[in-house]
Amino acid sequence: MTLAERAFERLHAWPDLSAGRPSCGTGPALRSVHGEIVHFHSDRDVDLHLTGRAIERFASDLQGSTAIHLVPGSRWVTVHLDCDTDVDLLLSLVSMALKAHQGQQTQQGQQGERTAPCNFRRVTVVPRDIPA
């Protein structure tokens, strides 16, 4: 079982998430009542939808991780799964995303941000074990 399959299986068991097709059309996705949350594009690459506020709040932490890739202006972050710790990081970030989207809807009193295109084909990930 790949790391992405393991992460999908664990997240799919969460009561706030349901499986579906991603808006980008590639790989399985999980969504909440507030919209798309995570796209599984390959055995190792996953896009996670955060709110702009959450990205701003945690930008320095996100940028400090070798597993996380940010695209300027995107509300999606790409998580590259190289080990079990990266899966744990993804699960923590999904939890944060669910809370952020729920909080945003509560503040706005309506549907949260529209889901913008994910980072699929906008991020190139070089495996950590290959020297740059």
Rank of each mutant, 00 (worst) to 15 (best):
H39Q: 07
A67R: 05
D88S: 05
P28L: 08
F40W: 08
L48H: 01
T124A: 11
P22K: 09
F40D: 01
A97E: 05
A116Q: 09
D88V: 06
D47E: 02
V33D: 15
T124F: 15
F40G: 00
L70Y: 01
D86N: 04
D45F: 01
E9P: 02
G109R: 10
H80N: 07
V94Y: 04
H34C: 13
V125L: 07
R10D: 12
P15I: 09
R114S: 12
P117A: 03
P131T: 08
H12V: 14
D61N: 13
K99M: 12
H39P: 01
K99I: 11
A132V: 05
Q108E: 14
A54D: 05
F8L: 13
Q108Y: 10
P72R: 12
T85R: 14
I55Q: 00
V79P: 02
S23W: 06
Q104C: 09
T26C: 08
G73R: 02
G25A: 01
A29S: 08
R114Y: 09
P117L: 05
E113M: 14
G52H: 13
L91I: 07
R75N: 14
L3H: 00
V71M: 06
Q111I: 11
L89G: 00
T124Q: 15
S74V: 02
H69K: 09
A100V: 04
